[in-house]
């Protein structure tokens, strides 16, 4: 374990070819099908995350953006081992935690915390604020801890709450305040990486700005990194240094935030950016708009996952699944259009 060695070159979090599948077929009797005089029991597998690789450096914010069902939340939950990954590797500071059991995860948990989406469901309604925010810390300590109240108070102050909130229950707070409590809980163990799963999407706009500011202030103060999951392009653009775009469980494009917004390469990224409502611009004609809807993650399409909705799809897209390849400037795209070999093919179509 490399606890003391903090090699700046080594990424804090590295995910290699991560794969997460869920068997949703239920029991044998649920699966039983009788069709055309034949009895079969097919399994139904949801391919939630398909060979995703990413790295988060110390002090960096990596935003993962995509629509519902694209696997971004599953990715987050698999990284903190709420799900056991079905394939690939998760490394924290070079330490492979993919197959860690409960006991071996314990020291890792201190480095890895999570902020959740729903401010109403993410706090135990029967716990007082002081117990909620101190729980991860107390769990990470071997024996009794002195000055718990002082520590709790200091934590609350960091997120903009005060002593009068210490002994209240979650229902006595507004959505934004609850999210602050959730952030305090994640801070209690002084983690290196916080995985934030849609932390502001359930909040009102004015409160959203407060929480985003708080998250940035805390990052500046403590120097941790975020893996920031969101569907909201304006939020991801504001908070991220780099962005990964997911579609149907695949990473289709990654790159520095500025490049992604200025020169999106993947047709899906382009469509996503075009669809996002812009303040003060009238709804234009459907130009970059894509039709149709996301296909089922149970029966993944052959070839490129996006080809059925892609206005630029050609023959090869149906046959071969594109790999995420670097295209320069730190950007990488999984699209046959952006591979050197396909330029003539494109010209021919």
């Amino acid at each position: 374990m490399s606890q003391s060695v903090k090699d700046p070159a080594k990424p804090l979090l590295e995910v290699r070819q991560l794969e997460q599948r869920f068997d949703v077929s239920g029991s044998f009797f649920d699966r039983l099908r009788i069709a055309g005089g034949r009895i079969s029991a097919p399994r139904r597998i949801v391919h939630a995350v398909n060979g995703v690789s990413l790295a988060v450096k110390r002090g960096e914010v990596l935003g993962i953006v995509g629509e519902s069902g694209c696997g971004k939340s599953t990715l987050a939950k698999t990284i903190v081992k709420l799900h056991e990954p079905t394939g690939g590797q998760i490394l924290i500071e070079g330490e492979d935690i993919t197959r860690h059991d409960f006991a071996r995860m314990r020291p890792v948990r201190k480095k890895l915390q999570m902020i959740f989406q729903d401010p109403y469901a993410s706090l135990n309604p029967r716990q007082k604020v002081r117990d909620i925010i101190m729980e991860p810390f107390l769990e990470s300590q071997a024996g009794p801890v002195p000055d718990i109240a002082d520590r709790a108070l200091a934590l609350l102050a960091k997120v903009g709450l005060g002593i009068e909130h210490l002994d209240r229950y979650p229902h006595q707070f507004s959505g934004g305040q609850r999210q602050r409590i959730g952030i305090a809980r994640a801070l209690s163990v002084q983690p290196d990486l916080i995985i934030a799963d849609e932390p502001v999407s359930a909040l009102d706009v004015s409160i959203q700005a407060q929480i985003l500011n708080l998250l940035m202030d805390l990052k500046d103060e403590f120097g941790f990194s975020y893996l920031f999951i969101t569907h909201d392009l304006s939020v991801v653009r504001y908070i991220s240094d780099r962005i990964g775009v997911m579609y149907l469980g695949f990473m289709v494009e990654t790159g520095p935030t500025r490049t992604i917004f200025a020169e999106p390469k993947h047709p899906y990224t382009r469509a996503l950016l075009a669809a996002a409502p812009q303040l003060g611009t009238k709804l234009g004609p459907a130009s970059e708009q894509v039709g149709g809807e996301v296909p089922s993650a149970i029966d993944l399409p052959r070839g490129c996952p996006f080809r059925q909705r892609c206005p630029l799809a050609f023959a090869r897209c149906a046959e071969e699944r594109p790999e995420l390849r670097p295209v320069g400037g730190g950007q990488a795209v999984a699209c046959h259009l952006h591979e050197p070999a396909t330029e003539p093919a494109l010209a021919a179509t």
């Binding site: 890895l112 469901a121 729980e135 769990e139």
Partner: peptide, 11 residues
Amino acid sequence: KEYVQAARVSG
């Protein structure tokens, strides 16, 4: 619910 997941993440 997420508070149970949070407890899991807390170890």
